[in-house]
Design a protein around this nucleic acid. Structure first.
Lengths: 213, 213
DNA sequence: TAGATTGTTAATCGATTAACAATC
DNA sequence: TAGATTGTTAATCGATTAACAATC
């Protein structure tokens, strides 16, 4: 790894490649070419090779890539060669859904705590977790060594929750509240706005209606 | 509207602009410049003007943009000047969360039906909706004139659900199942992969750890 | 060696930004 | 008119793709 500026699109594609390689590995495929990966995930072979080239030389000229090998490399690059403990703040519908979201577990994310400030929710069981009070947040983060926090609370208190997470030593935040949050530069943050996705769809529907797409 | 190829990034920014304009309007601001919008949402003034220029001339030279006016224009462009009836398939935790997701309602998306094939879930009340059986899906879609469907079922049956939605006349699909779905070209589809977002975070955390970011 | 496929460079494409004429 | 800000063109920047030498 020697390059500093890597397009985010490359990271997203690496994630796609790794999932595709997992499937290929399951099917018992040993060797795969950039063309086959490209075909499988819907990009160009050059794109596949270029994306990988940012991080090293993983293939053999004239042969292709060893599936298991490349799978491990891609997972390593994404930081998925270890388990990531994650805390979820907000035990509403969304928080509850996230705790049992299979897509997280499959990629090595482990929910190690769910928190809420509502006394009616504290103590309730969600899957194999018990909803904890916000007071227990710092201790659990420290004890479980969680670096990632998910915010699933109303927009009104999202900033307060972000502040608490940062204070407790969280290094990355995934925010579902429809509100831009302020965090120190040392903390990574991503806002998930589900409505925006629907708006891209409605825009495209309108374009089609008008015969422009 | 005369241009055919509009960057998706432009659409996403238009969504951001419209939210910012809503806030500005609430504050009673009447006129706003591209510089002020840019400042408010964190892009360049040229970007704001260019994004708008794809769709028309909405400002007055030397003056700026009328906030209410531009707000309406941006919402119109995004297709949000009408209400969009949406059906949700899957009454698990995620589906339940989506039915009461405030971010949808705020932007004009109205959930008009939630469906499941689990007899234990059918008939249950979620907010002000009753979970319907899958058999009722086509009729509800037709009656409520729903063009958008949300898939919140396990990956194993996601394709079947997509087929049903398409057959029932749905024109756009938002898919939360971690699986690429096949739909006809006439149907718009977006996959939401929540794990990928976490993977971008873990990648960045690893880059930081290695002093590369 | 002949055939295949990588890794990488150069060419292309597309999106962002800077600059400025138009104009309020 | 002088000052301000848009709409738009040209310049820049960055990402994708085509092409090919390296090499298995």
């Amino acid at each position: 790894m020697k390059v500093f500026k890597i397009p985010e699109a490359t990271i997203i594609r690496l994630s796609v490649y790794s999932r595709f390689l997992e499937q290929a590995d399951k099917k018992g495929i040993v060797t795969i070419s950039s063309g086959e990966i490209a075909e499988g995930v819907g990009v160009s072979p050059a794109q596949v090779r270029k994306d990988l080239a940012y991080f090293g030389e993983f293939g053999t000229r004239g042969v292709g890539y060893n599936v298991k090998d490349l799978l491990h490399h891609t997972l390593k690059i994404l930081g998925l060669s270890r388990e990531w403990p994650v805390v979820v703040v907000g035990a509403g519908n969304l928080g509850t859904a996230l705790v049992s979201y299979r897509g997280f577990r499959e990629r090595g994310f482990k929910i190690v705590g769910i928190f809420d400030n509502d006394p009616n929710k504290i103590g309730k069981t969600i899957g194999d977790m018990v909803v904890q009070s916000m007071e227990e947040l710092p201790e659990t983060i420290a004890k479980k060594n969680a670096a990632i926090g998910v915010i699933a609370v109303p927009a009104t208190i999202a900033q307060d929750v972000a502040d608490l997470l940062v204070k407790a030593g969280i290094k990355a935040i995934m925010n579902f509240a429809p509100k831009a949050l302020m965090v120190p530069d040392a903390v990574e943050i991503r806002n998930i706005d589900l409505a925006v996705t629907l708006e891209i769809l409605t825009f495209n529907l309108c374009m089609r209606e008008n015969g422009l797409l």
